Amino acid sequence: MRVLVALVVLGTIVAVPPALAEAWRAKPELEKGAPASCREADVSNLVFDFSDTGNDLSLKTNGGEAFAAPIAADGFVNTTLTVPVGRRTFAVDLTGNVKTREMELFNKQYACRFRLTPVQ
């Protein structure tokens, strides 16, 4: 009987689905004091969907581009990706903390920095 109970308990533990990833959306907002050329970058329609799966951060733009980046133990993320802005794409560094959701994008070519603001 104990073997049966142990198998049922073990089966219940194994059958539990993995935890759902924590997801949120964010929009880029140009930082104050940015160079004038940065104000020409129309990011008004750009939205990021983030999903924290524990060890990786997956993100997808509303244009369909998908990326993944490892999450450090302290929640920090640092990766480079390309994002669509109008008819062009630009390389940006994505840095920040997944736990606090304080993240930013930085384009080295034009020295443009965008804070990612969570949206509903």
Rank of each mutant, 00 (worst) to 15 (best):
E31H: 07
N45G: 15
V92R: 03
V43I: 14
V98E: 05
K108G: 02
K27L: 07
A69M: 13
F50C: 00
E104T: 08
D49C: 04
V92K: 05
D56T: 14
E102I: 12
K27D: 10
R88V: 01
T100F: 10
D42E: 04
F76W: 11
A68M: 10
R113V: 05
L59A: 13
V77R: 09
A68H: 10
T89Y: 04
A34L: 02
E40N: 11
V3F: 08
L7Y: 01
N62T: 00
P84D: 05
M103E: 05
P70G: 10
T89V: 06
A34I: 03
R39A: 10
A6L: 08
N107M: 12
L7I: 03
A73H: 11
L4F: 00
G33L: 03
L59M: 15
D93R: 12
P18D: 10
Y110V: 15
V9M: 11
K99H: 14
I13K: 08
K60E: 08
G63R: 09
G63S: 11
A21P: 03
A72S: 15
N78M: 10
K60P: 02
T79W: 09
F106W: 10
R101W: 05
Q109W: 06
A34V: 03
F76E: 15
S44C: 09
K99L: 10
F50Q: 02
V8A: 11
L20A: 14
P35R: 01
E104G: 11
V85S: 01
V3I: 08
G96R: 11
L46T: 09
G86L: 07
S51R: 10
S44P: 12
S44G: 13
R88T: 03
R2H: 06
A91E: 14
M1H: 06
W24V: 04
T80N: 14
Q120E: 12
A19R: 11
T79R: 14
S58W: 08
A26V: 00
L116D: 08
A41V: 11
G63C: 07
A91K: 14
V47D: 08
T80A: 14
Q120S: 13
R2V: 04
V14I: 14
L57M: 15
L46N: 09
G96S: 09
L94S: 07
E40P: 02
E22K: 01
Q120Y: 03
A26T: 02
P35V: 07
T89P: 02
K32A: 15
E29Q: 15
S37T: 03
P35H: 00
F50H: 00
A68Y: 04
D49K: 14
I13G: 15
S44E: 11
A19I: 11
A26S: 05
F114M: 08
L10E: 02
P18C: 09
L7F: 02
V77I: 15
D56P: 04
S58H: 13
N97L: 01
A23P: 01
K60H: 00
F114T: 01
R88W: 00
A68R: 14
S37C: 00
A23D: 06
L57F: 09
E22Y: 05
I71L: 12
F90S: 10
N62F: 03
G63Q: 09
L7P: 04
L94Y: 10
A23N: 06
V119M: 07
P18I: 12
T117R: 15
R115C: 05
A26L: 02
R25K: 15
